[in-house]
Design a protein around this nucleic acid. Structure first.
Length: 413
RNA sequence: CGGGGCGUGGCUCAGUUUGGCUAGAGCGCUUGCUUUGGGAGCAAGAGGCCACAGGUUCAAGUCCUGUCGCCCCGACCA
């Protein structure tokens, strides 16, 4: 991609509308723009990052045996009346009446829809167990949207649902999803604290929250520095080892629930067991805030100059900075390297703008691509270019012919 | 919804306290010349219903009333 043609409006100054670091950097690096409070557009590089996060989630969910589907976000309120949550979720649901006079809503979550679907399609114990998931836009008329993507009214969630014959089966799938979440967050470079949590409005018998420690978090976590125990309860001494607890702010990035038969009971999702008895399906549900994960990744991967993308998530693998694009030789070398890497399947962003070096360095720092190739007239006269890593700004000189090889080697590490 | 802050060219803000001539700065944008290893210099230009509506006044960005929008603190949640 040529930066001169890329829609990535970067901002030099801190936008007034943003308070949290991640929100500021998302706006400054040209990843997102606000339409109204709690509603955001993803610009091309923001969408690239979002797609990368989703790819990781899909890989791990598929590896755990979950099957992807896509449920409608347009839903009849009648379904919510049946589950009993139409009044419970009253404040938060976006509702309206369609032209036929039917009361509709935009899905704030999908337990009702998936349970309804499964209730019609699953009748026998032979069809279980089953794990289904989707990556979908959710709509919640939040009382107070804040911190950009951390709490927004329209956001992207990965939600999975497990369906089992009995409690034991559900426990197994719950463990499977728990482990998948650990794997996902590790690959997203998100260091999670896992907490046994309240089931709240979702209902059910058990639940775990995956929390990322971050300044702009909305939740407070009490952490034991000695044994690692964590809880959302405000307690002074660790119940496991007796050491002192300290409080930290955190972003809830994932939440998993043992639902049991709450929804299968109210929505009549029954199956016939091997003895011919009709029983409610035992369910679990598993959510990840995908767009929120994007915010959390930035929150935990940045420095004073901008974002530092983890390798699996970065919108581009490599940035090429010809410091003087009007210098014929610099331009030629830059485009040669660009073509070599691109044909090797590397995502490259070439800063071909006629800007001064300072502007290019500042933007590159802000955008946060993990490696950059700096092409300057001085090093070029020695037949070398420089390879600089974003995270520690370390630089090494590389002969021009060896650049593609060096980059491919770096990317493999 | 309750409490607090804010709203002035694309962005960051000054000016509002104490009303007064033609509404400002820096950055960005356009054109030209010079420059080219960490957000350049000079010159010329474009761009504003001072959030919106009503009111007070000889006179309103500035005072009053209402509305809308954004941010922060609380209940809610991925």
């Amino acid at each position: 991609m040529l930066l001169s043609k890329y829609f990535i409006p970067t901002i030099k100054e801190v936008p007034q509308e943003a308070e949290s670091i991640a929100h500021q950097l998302m706006l400054r690096a040209g990843l997102v723009r606000m339409l109204v409070a709690g509603v955001y557009s993803y610009l091309p590089s923001g969408l690239r990052v979002l797609n990368n996060i989703q790819a990781i989630i899909r890989q791990e969910m598929n590896a755990a045996g979950a099957q992807e589907l896509l449920l409608p976000c347009l839903q009849p309120q009648e379904l919510w009346d049946r589950s009993g949550r139409n009044t419970q979720m009253e404040e938060i649901m976006v509702r309206f009446t369609d032209r036929r006079g039917r009361k509709m809503c935009l899905g704030p979550t999908h337990e009702e829809v998936i349970t309804d679907l499964v209730s019609h399609q699953v009748n026998s114990y032979k069809q279980l167990p089953l794990i289904l998931y989707q990556i979908q836009t959710k709509f919640r008329d939040e009382i107070r949207p804040r911190f950009g993507l951390v709490r927004s009214c329209e956001f992207i969630m990965k939600d999975a649902y497990s369906f089992d014959l009995d409690e034991n089966g559900m426990e197994l799938n719950y463990k499977l999803m728990y482990d998948a979440y650990v794997a996902i967050f590790k690959r997203l470079s998100l260091n999670c604290v896992i907490i046994e949590a309240d089931t709240g409005v979702m209902g059910g018998s058990g639940s775990h929250e995956f929390m990322v420690l971050a300044e702009s978090g909305e939740d407070t976590v009490s952490l034991c520095g000695t044994c690692g125990y964590a809880t959302t309860l405000k307690i002074a001494l660790c119940p496991q080892c007796g050491a002192h607890m300290h409080e930290k702010k955190a972003i809830e990035i994932g939440h998993i629930f043992k639902l049991g038969t709450k929804y299968s009971h109210t929505l009549s999702a029954l199956f016939t067991d091997e003895k011919g008895a009709r029983k409610p399906i035992v369910m679990g549900c598993y959510g990840i805030g995908v767009s929120r994960a994007l915010a959390a990744i930035i929150e935990t991967n940045h420095d004073a100059d901008g974002i530092i993308w983890p390798s699996g998530i970065t919108p581009f693998d490599v940035a090429i900075l010809p410091l003087n694009i009007t210098h014929t030789e610099s331009k030629k070398v830059a485009f040669d390297i660009y073509r070599q890497l691109s044909t090797s399947g590397v995502n490259v962003l070439l800063d071909d703008r006629d800007e001064r070096s300072g502007v290019k360095f500042k933007d590159a720092d802000l955008i946060g691509i993990p490696v950059r190739i700096i092409i300057g007239t001085k090093t070029l006269s020695q037949n070398t270019v420089e390879l600089q890593k974003r995270h520690d700004k370390s630089i090494c000189a590389i002969p021009i012919e060896g650049v593609a090889h060096a980059i491919l080697k770096f990317l493999r590490e």
